[in-house]
Structure formats: structure tokens, C-alpha cells
Amino acid sequence: MNPLLEVKGLKKYYPIQSVGIGKLKSFVKAVDDVSFEVQEGETFGIVGESGCGKSTTGKSILRLTEPSDGEVIFQGQNLIKLKSSELRKMRHYMQFVFQDPYASLNPRMTIGATLEEPLKIHGLVKGREIRRKVKEMLEIVGLTEHHYHRYPHEFSGGQRQRIGIARALITNPKLIIADEPVSALDVSIQSQILNLMKDLQDQFKLTYIFISHDLSVVRHISDRIGVMYLGRMIEMAPKNSLFENPAHPYTQALLGAVPQTNNRIARERIVLTGDVPSPANPPSGCTFHTRCPSCMDICKTDKPEFKQTADQHWVACHLFS
């Protein structure tokens, strides 16, 4: 079965300075050669610590941030090579839910006008059907038509995120990329939003890319998970395989840092030393070798290949070469 989305060798470099006249610039390698596939109807989670490039990856896929290189194949078309007019026609199939719902909403527009806008831009619904469609969508995400004429500042954080989800859903997309959609919410509200997203996925046959730094949240909602470190994908596996048998030392350290309530399944905690290297000057070879407790000489010089070690389990580590 062909995947809904294929990401191949995706890169996003930000130039920061020139070394000298006629010489190459220095770059921040925010996303450095990331590849993965997403099957229709699944939720692919991306995790990693702050600054690892997971949000930039999500925005680069939809060209909200223009990637430096790579391919993004969606429904058989390479989004990177599409002209602006061609990409615009594809937009309503691919939507984004932002981390900060208040910052992503226009404070001068009512919620009704905010939800009407994508329908008008893409010409999906016309006339009186626009208002009917908006009211229907408000009810689907747990709001009512009484919220139609209200402004963003009149809502709570959880309600604003429901509006953000409604705006993404109203164009009837096939793929939604959610960038830390619950990280700014209280724990009780987080569970409501996550359950809403799962219900909507079943109802509308949605495919998600769910970006988060919270491992428990990602485990709850994802089918497969990719772990990023310093702009690269270092491990990818079905969620049960990843949590029960993490292969990469960095993934093991991440999972070991999660508080355990059941002593019978407590993990050995791996304490990483040193700071995360700068993406403007990443280490040679494996970028994790400066903090890795299992570092070998080859890790300092050679970049590990992304290899399959088990069924659907991939890892970039010389321990599995």
C-alpha cells in the first residue's frame, strides 16, 4: 500500500554568517536529512527535546517554512517542486494546528469569520452554506453557534485550541500536522483535546503527524513514533516497540527520565552529561557521540546509517552496524 506522505532527505538550513568574501556561509542545520513515511489513517508522532528540529520539520513539510532540500511526496506529487498556484490548490488537503492557539488566531476577527475564511479562499462552499458549515463544525469540536460572533480573547486556552482544530478540519483535509497542540494546556484539558482528536480521526478518516516533547502524550495518541536529535531522525518504530525495546542510547535516556509509578517496570536511568551541541556547529560523525555513554571511536568520525533492526524498527546507531 502506498503511503499518504513520503518525506525524503528533508533539509532546512538557516544561513547565519559569511566566513569571508567568496567563501561559504555558516548554517544552522535545523533539519538535516530527515526521511519517513506516513500511512493513510495513522498517527505518526515526532518527539525530541527543544531545538531538535521537530517543529521545523512539520512546517517544512507543508512549506510554511521553505525547505532547503529534499522531497515531500503527498498523493503522488512532490510539494517542494509545486508552483505557488499549484500548491494553493493542494492546501485544503493539508492543514496545520499550531502550538499557541491564541497567537494563531486573528484577534480582530470573530470566530465565525475565522472559520469562514478557508471555505471562501478555497471555494469549497458558497452562499448560505458557508454559515451552516461553520456552525456544524463548531458543534463537532464541542462549541456552539452562540460562539460564532465572539472574539479569540473571550475563550479559554482549551476552547481556542478547539477553534484551531475546527479551522484545520473545516476544509476536509486528509493530513493534519499538529505542533505541540496540548503543551500550553492544563493536564485535564489536554486529555479532552487528545480524546477529541482521536474521535475526529475516526469520524473523518484523518491522518496525523503529532509533534510533541511529552512522551506520555505521544504514546497515548500515536501508532508509530520517530525520535529526533539535533535535526536528524535517530530512531523510528511502532509505539509499543519503541517504549518496550528502545534501541538508540538517546531514546533509552529519554524513556529512562520519565517518572515511573510501577516499580516492576522501572527503567534504568541513563544520565546524559554535557550540553546539547549547537546546530550551527554539530559534531562530526554521530551528532550524539559527545553525550553518548556507549560512544566508540567510529561514532566520532562516521555518520551512522538509518537501518532496520526489527520489524518496522529503524535506528541510526553504530551499535547496530
Rank of each mutant, 00 (worst) to 15 (best):
I193V: 15
I193A: 07
L194H: 11
L194W: 09
N195T: 15
L196R: 13
M197N: 08
K198P: 08
D199K: 12
L200F: 09
Q201P: 01
Q201V: 03
D202I: 12
D202L: 15
Q203I: 12
F204N: 10
F204W: 09
K205I: 03
K205T: 07
L206S: 09
L206E: 10
T207Q: 00
T207R: 03
Y208D: 09
Y208H: 06
I209T: 06
I209K: 05
S212T: 12
S212D: 09
H213K: 13
H213T: 12
H213C: 13
L215T: 03
L215F: 08
S216P: 05
S216Q: 12
V217A: 01
V218E: 00
H220Q: 12
I221L: 05
S222V: 07
S222Y: 05
D223N: 10
R224K: 13
R224F: 06
I225F: 04
V227W: 02
V227H: 02
M228P: 01
L230E: 10
G231N: 00
G231S: 05
R232I: 12
R232A: 14
M233G: 01
I234K: 02
I234M: 05
E235F: 01
M236R: 12
A237V: 05
A237P: 00
A237S: 04
K239T: 14
K239H: 04
N240F: 15
N240P: 14
L242V: 06
E244G: 05
N245S: 15
A247L: 15
T251E: 08
T251L: 08
T251G: 07
Q252F: 03
Q252N: 14
L254H: 00
G256S: 02
A257H: 07
A257C: 14
P259N: 06
Q260H: 14
T261I: 13
N262H: 10
N262V: 09
N262T: 09
N262K: 10
R264K: 15
I265F: 07
I265K: 09
I265V: 13
E268I: 11
I270D: 00
V271C: 01
D275W: 10
V276H: 04
P277V: 06
S278M: 04
S278A: 06
S278F: 08
S278Y: 07
P279W: 01
P279L: 01
A280L: 13
A280K: 13
N281C: 11
P282T: 13
P283K: 06
F288T: 02
H289Y: 11
C292S: 10
C292I: 07
P293N: 07
S294P: 00
S294V: 03
C295T: 14
M296C: 07
K300A: 14
K300E: 12
K300G: 11
T301A: 11
D302V: 08
F306N: 06
F306L: 14
F306K: 04
Q308L: 10
